[in-house]
């Protein structure tokens, strides 16, 4: 049997694809920013925080890192409403991504924090900086700079992982591909197109992360 690839549907469905791309980008923008913030907080809690905070944060990190994103998503979207927490599919997708990136980001950032020599912390304190100031200026910023490449990779991984949010009917890029293949029966072509777009998005997200890194750590040379 001979099969001919047919992309003639492409112009007609381009708006659907574009809409999907926008949703995917929106998800990673919100998920990326909030996830990194959550990661910073959790890294602080695990590395330097009070003892009563260490255990619950550790449990959260281990739970998220050792379960599939798909199940986290299903638990949030299908499971939580039965205890009265209800949300739309976009919110659920965003929440799941923030929680997921928060846990992975925590471990990456924590590695950066723990690589900070103890003397730096003491030096900051001896300059009469408060513990919070010391953490912010002396510990956190150099730590983030140190692990920024790893964190960027994780953001890309979460973006690629976000393709499963189509399973709770969030209308992202994968959802668009599913929609197109159900209309045109050109499944292979639809997924080829979306796979290529994901590849491009991965490159773009990585570039954006590099630029953000340069903006955040201007006067230092990249490690």
């Amino acid at each position: 049997m001979k099969y001919h690839l047919d992309f003639s549907w492409l112009p007609q469905y381009a708006p659907d694809i574009l809409k999907g791309v926008m949703i995917t980008l929106e998800l990673i923008a919100v998920g990326g920013v909030l996830g990194i913030l959550l990661g910073i907080f959790c890294a602080w809690a695990r590395a330097l925080g009070p003892r009563w905070l260490k255990a619950p944060v550790g449990l959260y990190v281990e739970l998220i890192r050792n379960t599939p994103f798909l199940i986290q998503l299903f638990f949030i979207f299908f499971g939580l409403p039965s205890i009265g927490v209800q949300m739309g599919e976009l919110t659920a997708a965003n929440l799941a991504m923030v929680i997921n990136l928060g846990a992975y980001g925590c471990e990456i950032i924590r590695a950066g924090i723990q690589a900070t020599p103890k003397g730096q912390f003491e030096a900051g304190r001896s300059l009469a900086m408060s513990p919070v100031e010391t953490f912010r200026h002396v510990v956190l910023v150099p730590s983030l700079q140190r692990i920024w490449p790893a964190l960027s990779s994780q953001v890309v991984i979460v973006m690629l992982g976000s393709s499963v949010v189509s399973q709770i009917a969030t209308q992202d890029l994968t959802f668009a591909a599913n929609f197109i293949q159900s209309r045109t029966f050109r499944a292979f072509e639809a997924y080829i197109v979306s796979t290529v777009i994901y590849l491009v998005l991965a490159v773009i997200v990585r570039q954006v992360m590099t630029l953000v890194g340069r903006a955040l750590f201007p006067r230092r040379t990249a490690a």
């Binding site: 890309v156 690629l160 393709s163 499963v164 994968t174 292979f188 796979t195 994901y198 590849l199 991965a202």
Partner: peptide, 11 residues
């Protein structure tokens, strides 16, 4: 590494 595993499965 640059594409979602889900897409690879569909393909």
């Amino acid at each position: 590494q640059g594409t979602p595993l889900l897409m690879q499965m569909f393909l």
